[in-house]
Design a protein around this nucleic acid. Sequence first.
DNA 1: ATAATAAAAGACAAAAGTATCTTCTATTAT
DNA 2: ATAATAGAAGATACTTTTGTCTTTTATTAT
Lengths: 145, 145
Amino acid sequence: MAIFSKTCEYAIRAVFYIAHKTANGGRVGIKDIATGIVSPELYLAKILQDLSRKGLISSYKGPNGGFFIEPTSLSKPLSEIVEAVDGDSLFYGCALGLKQCSEVNPCPLHNDFKAIRDKIHLLLNTTTVGEFNNELMNGLFSLKK
Amino acid sequence: MAIFSKTCEYAIRAVFYIAHKTANGGRVGIKDIATGIVSPELYLAKILQDLSRKGLISSYKGPNGGFFIEPTSLSKPLSEIVEAVDGDSLFYGCALGLKQCSEVNPCPLHNDFKAIRDKIHLLLNTTTVGEFNNELMNGLFSLKK
DNA sequence: ATAATAAAAGACAAAAGTATCTTCTATTAT
DNA sequence: ATAATAGAAGATACTTTTGTCTTTTATTAT
C-alpha cells in the first residue's frame, strides 16, 4: 500500500504542475497537464473538476482557457489537497482501523503512530502548493512516472 | 486513505491476539480470533493461512488445534507482517507514485517523505509481535472496533 | 452569430480489494 | 474406525477504486 491513493497522487502532481506553469499568469489545458505528469487525461479531468469545485484550483472556459492557480492560492498547504481527495484518516485515523481507538481506549500502536501521523500532518501543512515552482521550472524535480 | 490495507489491519490485530493468547502455550481457533478482534471469520481465515504459509505464525490441525505463535517468533518485528501483506512500498515507495523517483531524479516530496518512511520503517522494525502481551492480557490495549 | 476551444457531467467498464460459500483434507479424542 | 474439530483451497460475489466514453454547457476570438 502506498501512502496516498492513485487519485491523490495524480491530484498533487497536477497541482504542482499547474502551479509552476501558471505562476506568472496564463492557463494550462488538461491535455498539457495530463502529458506533463503522465496520467490518464479523462480521469485527471474529473479530479481537477473536483478540486476546482472545492476552490483549491481555478479554471477558465473557452478558447485559451484552462486551469490555473491564483497567486494567493500558491501559499495553500498541500494538506488541503490531500484532505480533499483522501480524507483525513491519514492525519487522525487509527493505524489498525479501530473506530474506538483513542487516548483512553488505545490500540497497541496508538501512541507510536500518533507521532508518525503528526509528522505527516506537519509536513503537509508546511509544504505549500507553490513552494517548488523554481525547482520545477529548472527541471530539478520530476513529476513524471 | 488509511496507512494499511484492511487485510493488513486484520492481520496485525490477529497476530497480536494470537500472540498474547498463546504466549504460555496452547492454541486459539479461528472463531475465537475472529470474535476477539471483530473481523469476518472466513476472510480472516485466508489471511492467517497466508501468514502461516509464510512462517510468520503457526497452526495445528485437529481437535484442540488452532493457531499459535512460537515463543521464538514473539520477537519478530511487525514489519514482517506488514511487508508480507501490503508489500514494501510503504517503506520504499515514492509518495507521488513515481517509479523513477530517486536521489538523482527526485519528486518534489522525495526528501521529506524519505524521512517519514524511515520513521515508519524503524517503528515497525523495532515493534515486536509479542511486545504488548502483558498490556493485552491486562486489558490495557484494545484490538476491537 | 459562429466556430473553436475547453470544462462539466453522467453513464459505463475494467481492475483490485474485500468478503462469502462450499467442499475437501488433516488430525486426534473417543 | 468414527466423529468431531480445524485448517486448506477454489469458486463466487460484492464494493471501491481507477479509468473511459459520450454528450452537454460555457466562453470567446473571429
